[in-house]
Protein backbone atom coordinates (compact mmCIF):
# COMPACT_ATOMS: atom_id res chain seq x y z
CA UNK A 1 0.00 0.00 0.00
CA UNK A 2 1.68 3.11 -1.19
CA UNK A 3 1.56 6.46 0.57
CA UNK A 4 -0.74 8.08 -2.01
CA UNK A 5 -3.43 5.40 -1.61
CA UNK A 6 -3.19 5.68 2.17
CA UNK A 7 -3.61 9.44 2.03
CA UNK A 8 -6.51 9.15 -0.37
CA UNK A 9 -8.38 7.15 2.27
CA UNK A 10 -7.38 9.76 4.86
CA UNK A 11 -9.10 12.32 2.64
CA UNK A 12 -12.23 10.17 2.48
CA UNK A 13 -12.20 9.90 6.27
CA UNK A 14 -11.88 13.66 6.71
CA UNK A 15 -14.79 14.31 4.34
CA UNK A 16 -16.88 11.75 6.22
CA UNK A 17 -15.98 13.49 9.49
CA UNK A 18 -17.07 16.84 8.02
CA UNK A 19 -20.39 15.33 6.96
CA UNK A 20 -20.93 13.71 10.34
CA UNK A 21 -20.05 16.91 12.21
CA UNK A 22 -22.71 18.72 10.20
CA UNK A 23 -25.12 15.91 11.02
CA UNK A 24 -24.30 16.14 14.71
CA UNK A 25 -24.63 19.92 14.77
CA UNK A 26 -28.00 19.68 13.06
CA UNK A 27 -29.34 17.29 15.68
CA UNK A 28 -27.63 18.81 18.69
CA UNK A 29 -28.40 22.51 18.34
CA UNK A 30 -31.66 23.98 19.49
CA UNK A 31 -31.21 27.29 17.70
CA UNK A 32 -32.55 27.15 14.17
CA UNK A 33 -29.93 29.41 12.54
CA UNK A 34 -27.20 27.13 13.86
CA UNK A 35 -29.06 24.18 12.37
CA UNK A 36 -28.98 25.93 9.01
CA UNK A 37 -25.21 26.49 9.26
CA UNK A 38 -24.70 22.83 10.10
CA UNK A 39 -26.73 21.94 7.03
CA UNK A 40 -24.37 24.04 4.93
CA UNK A 41 -21.47 22.03 6.36
CA UNK A 42 -23.11 18.82 5.15
CA UNK A 43 -23.63 20.24 1.66
CA UNK A 44 -19.99 21.29 1.48
CA UNK A 45 -18.92 17.77 2.42
CA UNK A 46 -21.04 16.27 -0.35
CA UNK A 47 -19.61 18.69 -2.94
CA UNK A 48 -16.04 17.93 -1.84
CA UNK A 49 -16.73 14.20 -2.14
CA UNK A 50 -18.02 14.51 -5.71
CA UNK A 51 -15.10 16.70 -6.76
CA UNK A 52 -12.65 14.24 -5.25
CA UNK A 53 -14.15 11.43 -7.34
CA UNK A 54 -13.53 13.52 -10.47
CA UNK A 55 -9.87 14.19 -9.74
CA UNK A 56 -6.98 12.16 -11.16
CA UNK A 57 -3.26 12.07 -10.51
CA UNK A 58 -1.78 15.09 -12.21
CA UNK A 59 -5.11 16.20 -13.62
CA UNK A 60 -5.03 19.81 -14.81
CA UNK A 61 -8.05 22.10 -14.98
CA UNK A 62 -10.58 21.03 -17.64
CA UNK A 63 -9.89 23.87 -20.05
CA UNK A 64 -8.50 22.56 -23.31
CA UNK A 65 -4.85 23.48 -23.83
CA UNK A 66 -3.72 23.25 -27.46
CA UNK A 67 -1.31 20.37 -27.83
CA UNK A 68 -2.57 18.25 -24.94
CA UNK A 69 -5.03 15.68 -26.26
CA UNK A 70 -4.50 12.96 -23.69
CA UNK A 71 -7.69 12.18 -21.79
CA UNK A 72 -5.90 11.36 -18.57
CA UNK A 73 -4.29 14.78 -18.46
CA UNK A 74 -7.51 16.61 -17.60
CA UNK A 75 -9.65 16.38 -14.51
CA UNK A 76 -13.16 15.10 -15.10
CA UNK A 77 -15.50 17.97 -16.06
CA UNK A 78 -18.75 16.10 -15.40
CA UNK A 79 -18.80 16.18 -11.55
CA UNK A 80 -17.68 19.82 -11.68
CA UNK A 81 -20.61 20.81 -13.89
CA UNK A 82 -23.04 18.95 -11.64
CA UNK A 83 -21.64 20.53 -8.49
CA UNK A 84 -21.80 24.00 -10.04
CA UNK A 85 -25.58 23.74 -10.15
CA UNK A 86 -25.60 22.21 -6.65
CA UNK A 87 -23.81 25.25 -5.21
CA UNK A 88 -26.22 27.72 -6.80
CA UNK A 89 -29.23 25.73 -5.57
CA UNK A 90 -27.52 25.74 -2.16
CA UNK A 91 -27.71 29.55 -2.14
CA UNK A 92 -31.41 29.65 -2.93
CA UNK A 93 -32.02 27.00 -0.26
CA UNK A 94 -30.29 29.26 2.25
CA UNK A 95 -32.42 32.22 1.18
CA UNK A 96 -35.68 30.30 1.52
CA UNK A 97 -34.63 28.84 4.88
CA UNK A 98 -33.82 32.29 6.26
CA UNK A 99 -37.21 33.49 5.02
CA UNK A 100 -38.90 30.67 6.89
CA UNK A 101 -36.89 31.55 10.00
CA UNK A 102 -38.09 35.15 9.86
CA UNK A 103 -41.67 33.94 9.51
CA UNK A 104 -41.21 31.54 12.45
CA UNK A 105 -39.79 34.35 14.58
CA UNK A 106 -42.79 36.52 13.74
CA UNK A 107 -45.28 33.77 14.57
CA UNK A 108 -43.76 32.10 17.65
CA UNK A 109 -41.51 34.95 18.81
CA UNK A 110 -38.68 32.50 19.47
CA UNK A 111 -36.16 30.44 17.53
CA UNK A 112 -35.60 27.73 20.12
CA UNK A 113 -36.75 24.45 18.67
CA UNK A 114 -37.73 22.69 21.90
CA UNK A 115 -39.64 25.78 22.97
CA UNK A 116 -41.58 25.79 19.70
CA UNK A 117 -42.32 22.08 20.03
CA UNK A 118 -43.49 22.57 23.62
CA UNK A 119 -45.86 25.34 22.58
CA UNK A 120 -47.13 23.29 19.66
CA UNK A 121 -48.21 20.46 21.94
CA UNK A 122 -50.34 22.77 24.04
Amino acid sequence: MSVAIFFSYVIFWLIALLYVSGFFGMMEHNHLVKKLMAMNLMQTAVILFFLLLGQKIGGITPIAVPGITDIDAYANPLPQALMLTAIVVNLSTTGIALTFLIVIKKFWNTLDESEIMRRMDK
Binding site: V88, L91, S92, G95, L98, T99
Partner: peptide, 13 residues
Protein backbone atom coordinates in the same frame (compact mmCIF):
# COMPACT_ATOMS: atom_id res chain seq x y z
CA UNK B 1 -32.44 35.18 -13.77
CA UNK B 2 -29.76 34.71 -11.12
CA UNK B 3 -29.04 38.44 -10.75
CA UNK B 4 -32.63 39.51 -10.31
CA UNK B 5 -33.45 36.60 -8.01
CA UNK B 6 -30.56 37.36 -5.68
CA UNK B 7 -31.46 41.06 -5.52
CA UNK B 8 -35.09 40.15 -4.88
CA UNK B 9 -34.23 37.74 -2.05
CA UNK B 10 -31.96 40.36 -0.48
CA UNK B 11 -34.71 43.00 -0.68
CA UNK B 12 -37.29 40.66 0.77
CA UNK B 13 -35.04 39.52 3.61
Amino acid sequence: GVMATIISIFDSL
